[in-house]
Design a protein around this nucleic acid. Sequence first.
RNA 1: GCCCCUAUCGUCUAGCGGCCUAGGACGCCACCCUUUCAAGGUGGAGAUCACGGGUUCGAAUCCCGUUGGGGGCACCA
Length: 504
Amino acid sequence: MSSEGTKIRVRIAPSPTGPFHIGTARTALFNLLYARRNGGTYIVRVEDTDVARSTTEHEADILEGLRWLGLEADEGVVAAGEERGDRGPYRQSARTTRYAEVAQQLHARGLAYHCFCTAGELEVERSARDKAKLPPRYSGRCATIPATESARRVAAGESAALRFRIQPGIVVIDDLVRGRVEIDAETLGGDLVILRADGSPLYHFTVVVDDADMGITHVIRGEDHLSNTPKHILLFQALGVPLPKFAHLPLILNPDRTKMSKRKSQTAIADYRAEGFLKEAIINFLALLGWSTGSEDEILSVEEIQERFDLDHVQKAGAIFDRTRLEWINGQWIRKLTHDDLLARLRPFYDRAVEDGRIGRPARDEEIAALLPLIRERIPLLSSVIELTDFLFIETLQHDAALLVPKRWEPATALAALEAARPLVAAGIGEGDAPLLDAEDPLEVKLRALAESNGWKAGDLFMALRAAATGRTATPPLFDSMRLLGQAAVLARIDQAIALLRAV
RNA sequence: GCCCCUAUCGUCUAGCGGCCUAGGACGCCACCCUUUCAAGGUGGAGAUCACGGGUUCGAAUCCCGUUGGGGGCACCA
C-alpha cells in the first residue's frame, strides 16, 4: 500500500491526565517493538489538549517512566523541555494553531460546518433519543444552515463549535490484528465536533492531524479505540492523506475482566518500580500479555523480544493482569542479574528504609555485597530485602517471646538450649566474619553434636538461635547470618533472649 | 439501547484441518533436597477447546447462530 517502501513510523500518545499507566506502558512497548523489529521510528507525542486535567507532574511521571523502562522516544518528547525531531512540535498544547488551520481548511471545503446548538439543546436531543431507546446521535440540525447565514451569525459573535460532516457509507478497517472490520458510518453518532466553541480542538481531530503531520504509518493502540477508528479514517480521507495501518491490541484487564483501572488494580508504573519490580521483568511480563513467541520460551530480554516480535502472534481477547506471574518473572530476573547490578539496584531500597525508619542505620556496599548470595533466591521483589535482612541493621531487637520457643519445645527447653549453645557460638563466631556459604561450617557441626547429646532436634536448636539472633523465623541461612551480624551483637541478643525466657 | 470486538486448564498462553486421547508457564497439591524461608528437582490435579448447528473423509482450528465477556457510542482523552 501507500506505506510500502516508506520507513515505518509509529507513535505512543500518552495523555498527562494521570500517572504513567501500565496500559500505556504496554502500548508503548508494542510500538517500540514493532519499530525496532522493522527498522522504524518510535515517536512519543504528548496529548495535553485537555488543559483542565493535564498536569506537568503527570507528564514528568510518564516521561520518566518511559525512560526507566527503556521506552524513550526516538523522536518526539523525551523530557520536560526536550523534543527530538523535525516534525513537531510533539506536544499538542503547542499545536493549537495547526489544528485551527486544518479545521479552517475543512470548513472552507465544506467538509465541516458551524454548529450553534447549545449544550442545553444537545442535552434535550440526547435525552429524547435515550428515552426512545435510541443511541446518542447528533441530529445535524445545523448542517443545513446556509453558508451566508452561518457566516453572519459567527461574525455577530454567536458561539459555535465546528462539526465535521460524517458521510454515509460503510467504513472498512483493515486491522493488522483483527482483520477486516466494517462499521456503518450511520452508527458513529452524527457529525463530529472537531473544535469546541472556544476554538480548542478535540481528541479525534487532533489525533488525526498529528498522525498525518508526523507521517505515522502504523497506529498501534488499545482495542478501546477500535470503535472510534472509522471517525479517524473519515478524517484522514478528508485531509487527503494516506491512511496509516491500524493494529488494535487486546486490553489489559482487572481480575473481573473489565478494562484495567486504577480503582480495581494497581496501575501506576511508579508504584511497581517502588515495590522493587525490575524494568526487565515488567517489559518481559507486558510483552507476554497479549503476545507470545509461539515457542515455550518465557524469560526474555527486550533484545530477544525485539528479534521475535510480530503482530501475527498478538492475541485478540483481553488478558487479565496477573500480578503473581509478574512476581515470578521478577524473581527470575533478580536471579539473572550480575552481582554488581543487583547490588546497585538494592542500594536505593536500603537507603529508603533508613529514611522511613525501618532499619536503624545505613547499609554499606560491602555489607550488601556480602549478603547477596544469601538473599538472591529469597526476594521476589527488591523491596523484600528489607524484611529479610533488617535484623542486621537494627541496633536493639524487640524479641517476641513466643517466637523464641520452637513449636515442639517448652520455654524451659529453649532457655536451656540457648544457654548451652552460647559458649559454642562465642567460640565459633568472630567479628566481621565472611559468610562460609556452602562450605562445611564447624560451628554447625558442634551445635549438631550439642543437640544430639541433649536429645534435641538440630532444627529446633537452630530455630531457637535464629529467633534469638534475628527476631524472625524466616531468615537467610542461620550461620552466615550470625557471622554477618558479628559476635558481639549475636551474643548480646542471645543474652537478651535468655533474660526474656527466664522472666517468663 | 445501538454498534464493534472477543471466547483453549483458576491465570498467561501453544495450536493457524489430520502430529491433540490439547502442549508449556504461573498458581495449587505431593514428594525430594533442606537449619527456617526461599530457590531448585520430580510427580500430580486442573480445559467434554463456551454452547448448538453446519462444511469436510477428518475441526480446538473454517462458516452460521446462540450465550457469556469486553469495549465504544461527549463541545473527555
